[in-house]
Structure formats: C-alpha cells, structure tokens
Amino acid sequence: MTDILSTTPGLFPLPDWAKDELSDLKGHQKSDLVSGEENEEILDAYDRTREELVSRQVEAGLDRVVEGQARWDDMLAHPLAVHDAVETRGIVRYYDNNNFYREPVVTGELGFDGDTAADLEAAAALTDAPLQATLPGPYSLFDLATDEHYGDEAEFLAGLAEFLAGEVEALPDHETLFLCEPSLVETPPGEDLDELASEAVDTVAAATDAEVVVHSYWGAIPEKPYAHLMDADVDAVGFDFVADHERNLYNIQEYGTKDAIALGVVDGQNTLVEEPSTIRERIEWVQEQVPAQSFETVYATANTELFYLPTNRAGAKLDALAEAAELEEVEA
C-alpha cells in the first residue's frame, strides 16, 4: 500500500507583520535585506516568524514540517549568500519571474557554515512533528552562483556538493531532505555536466540517513539529464505536474523512477486554492498512468516554493494538501 505524505518545498511567504517589522528594523525592503547580518531584534523577529510558520504547518496536519526559510531573502542562493567565502554583488532576476536575489560570488574555499542546521535545530525545538530539511540542490546552486575561486566548472560543482554535504551532516534529526533543483529544468546541464550533476547530488544525499527527494519544477528535466539523475542514490525524484504533466509523465514511463516519488500537484504560484479531492485525483491519475510501478511513498507537495503567495493562500494550500493525503481513494 502506498503511503501518501503531505509536504512542501518550503520557502514560505513572510507574514505581513514580519514584513513590516523587518523592513523597519533593516531600513529598506525585504528584497534588499542583508541575510546573515542580524542583530538581536532582527533575530527575535525571525524566531517569532519561524514559530508561526511551524505552528501553521502543524495546525494543517502536514506529514512533514519544514523550518519555513523566512531568512532566505536570496531564495535558493541563501546558503551561499551568508557564507564567509562569498561576496554578494548585483541584483539578479530569480529564474524567469519578478523575484530577485543578490548574486553570490564564491571567492574562497567553501568550508563548513552551519546556517541551515541552526535554523532546523530552532524548528525542532518547536515541534515533535517529523521534520523535513530544505536545501538547494548542488546543480541549482552552481547555476545561481558565480565562481571566482575554483576556476573549473567540474571542480566548482564538486566543491558546492561537498559544501552542501557538510551542511547536511550537521542537521538535527530529520525524516526527509528536499533538494530543490529547478535549474535542471530551467538551465539543464550540457554534455559535460549532466553526469557530474548526478554525482554531485549523490555526494549530498550520502551525507544523511533521511529520505532524499530531488525536486524539480517549472517544467520537466530533459531526457539525458533525467536519465543520469536516475543513477543517483536518492529515494525519490520530484515532478512538477502543474507546469508540464505530459513531459514529466513521459520521463517516468520511458526511464522509470524511484520506488518513492514527489508529485507537485498544488500550484505554488497561483492564489486559487485546490480542493483536496482534486489534489487526490491528480495523485491517483499519475499512479494510474504507470501501472507497472507501485510506489512505496508519494510525497504530495506544492510544485514550487510558496513565497510567491499571500500568507492566507499559502496556509489554505497547506490545509488542502494535508486533507488530500488523508482522503480515501477518489471514486471514478
């Protein structure tokens, strides 16, 4: 029997009170805030925000609870943006949307930082619910960053993977690790990097005993990088069935997938809140299309990060995901 677990890729929107308070404390808008240089008042605001985000997930009844990543002003680039060996420079468009991040330029060896572990430890102190860690995948971090130290693409990608592996090793106990890899879709690796991208994922996944999900979104991974990703020793690959159900289904049918799967069946960028029965129907539709494969676990998730949404809509989608996971099978 398949376990259906409700979860998200994290990166939640800031509550309105936190936006206002942090803007006042830092003196300018959130898109320009300097991550990692927080005084006690700012840290207190983030602590209260984290408590609210964790509490809301527990209230919804999600099967996996994330820290919320409220401090990630630079979105997936955050783990580098706060690192001592990285300079943040000009403002760069975050993929193809109206969000922006500060370009992280790696100027030295990427040693251990511990920023993500500290945040997850703070979340662990707030709940007994099963925790899920969220990190950028190594290839997406490679795509978002600029190298002024390693001098070679393969070495840079390997250095980022080792850095992320060190961060993962320091995490408190967690049930699941989501590695967000939208760049596999948006800027897929070419001939020289597609196999190396899979090896980099392996390096990070080997650093935890938790279930590891490589979640891609904003479309489908091209065939060759996907085939290489299937060689990675991870527990599940995530598919965006909101943005492109046909090509994602083709990848699964043509190349197979892991014994577990993550399905992006809730739109993380649209304020329309899906009915739980609709979400469950989408999950069952995917299962029906691949009758030869019986999944041990289905992670039912939003297709993208949730910071695009108003907080009330994001919360409503959490409720819908949790309820969908608990529904009996939808009758045809």
Rank of each mutant, 00 (worst) to 15 (best):
T116E: 13
E67A: 11
I42K: 05
G114N: 03
D44I: 00
G108Q: 08
H78G: 03
L76N: 09
V65K: 03
D84A: 13
M75E: 05
N98V: 08
E109H: 13
M75C: 08
R48Q: 15
G111L: 08
E59M: 02
S55M: 02
G90H: 12
W72M: 00
A70C: 10
V66Q: 06
Y101K: 01
R93N: 11
R64H: 11
R64S: 04
L76Q: 10
E67Y: 11
A85C: 06
V92Q: 14
V58R: 03
G108C: 07
D63W: 04
T49W: 11
L62H: 02
E52T: 09
A81Q: 09
G68L: 05
L76K: 00
F100P: 02
A85N: 07
Y94G: 02
W72R: 14
E109I: 03
Y101R: 06
E59L: 00
G90T: 13
Q69N: 15
L62D: 05
A45F: 03
V66K: 04
T49R: 07
R64W: 09
G68P: 04
H78Q: 15
I42S: 15
A85Y: 08
R93K: 14
G114Y: 00
F112A: 13
V82T: 13
R102L: 06
D63P: 05
Y94C: 02
Q57V: 07
I42G: 10
N98Q: 12
V106A: 06
V82I: 14
P79A: 09
D113M: 02
N99W: 10
D74V: 00
L43N: 14
P79R: 09
G68H: 04
V105E: 10
R50K: 11
L76R: 02
E51V: 06
E59S: 10
E87T: 10
Y101Q: 05
V54D: 01
